[in-house]
């Protein structure tokens, strides 16, 4: 039987480990620093612009999130289980009165807590900076962007954990994570654009292919939170606005939830049944 107390104990340890992880600290400082720098650059000085500063900062932070969050989520997730398997720490943990679901969920939730804390710090520093400068009228859209960034982070971490259960070595897991990051951030976009042009795909097909990528889901949903329509995305954006109207944002949010839940459930299922993989080379 799965016990929440064990999940919490493992999650707390993972959270503490992450806070001591120098790469994680570097990421946190870099993200918070860049977020603060963006918010400062967007202060144009006029009262009229200050009123819109939260939305403008959120728009700038979307690109930062699209680049940074998948990288850190995928790499942290993929290195976690594979690293423990390689050192033997995983099998020692599994030799205690815990089950595999508790171990995997504990690790996931701990890392998720650390990742969300980093995002909160980054967005928080930028938000406080903006609030101190003036207007907070559009803070709601900013908060929605933060929440969407949380879901993107959780989805990327889930994917990372799934890759971690599939890879035997940390190096392979990290390699897979970096490839996935490249694919989602760069290759996926270019591939869709190239395919759309060369095959002259209908606009609705282009839109549906695009939103298979969780990063595109986040991007479209974030733009929707800071402006009412998707004109900025061209014909595909207009098609989405016409087709789904007010349902678009909840649907995109649901998509991100599915991208979070499905990979982690897949990881749990694989991890629960991959005995030889877990034990290989680790119980010397």
């Amino acid at each position: 039987m799965t016990e929440f107390a064990n999940i919490r104990t493992i999650a707390r340890k993972e959270l503490r480990d992450a806070m001591r992880n120098r790469w994680f600290i570097v990421f946190t400082i870099a993200f918070a620093g860049l977020a603060l720098a963006l918010s400062a650059l967007i202060q144009p000085g006029g009262t009229q612009f200050r009123m819109m500063s939260f939305s403008r900062t959120a728009a700038s932070l979307i690109n930062l999130v699209l680049l940074f969050v998948p990288l850190i989520g995928l790499t942290l997730g993929s290195a976690n289980l594979a690293g423990d398997r390689e050192t033997g720490a995983l099998v020692y943990l599994l030799a205690q009165p815990v089950n595999r679901v508790e171990v995997l969920l504990g690790k996931y939730l701990g890392m998720a807590g650390a990742l969300l804390a980093t995002l909160t710090l980054g967005f928080g520093v930028a938000g406080v900076g903006l609030a101190l400068q003036g207007g907070i009228q559009d803070a709601g859209g900013y908060l929605l962007t933060v929440i969407l960034a949380y879901f993107l982070a959780l989805a990327m971490l889930s994917l990372g954990f799934l890759m971690s259960t599939l890879a035997q070595k940390t190096a392979a897991a990290l390699g897979g994570a970096l490839f996935m990051w490249l694919f989602l951030v760069f290759i996926g976009d270019l591939g869709i654009m190239g395919t759309a042009v060369s095959m002259q795909l209908p606009i609705e097909v282009v839109f549906f292919i695009a939103i298979l990528n969780p990063l595109q889901m986040f991007k479209i949903a974030s733009i929707l939170t800071i402006q009412a329509n998707l004109e900025v995305l061209g014909p595909a954006g207009l098609y989405a606005t016409d087709q789904f109207g007010d349902l678009l944002l909840p649907l995109l949010l649901l998509g991100l939830v599915i991208w979070t839940v499905v990979p982690i459930l897949g990881a749990v299922a694989l991890f629960s049944h991959q005995e030889k993989f877990i034990l290989k080379g680790s119980m010397r």
Partner: peptide, 11 residues
């Protein structure tokens, strides 16, 4: 359980 070489976490 005591393994041949226990792998502990960094604590």
């Amino acid at each position: 359980y005591v393994p041949q070489e226990a792998a502990f976490y960094d604590m």
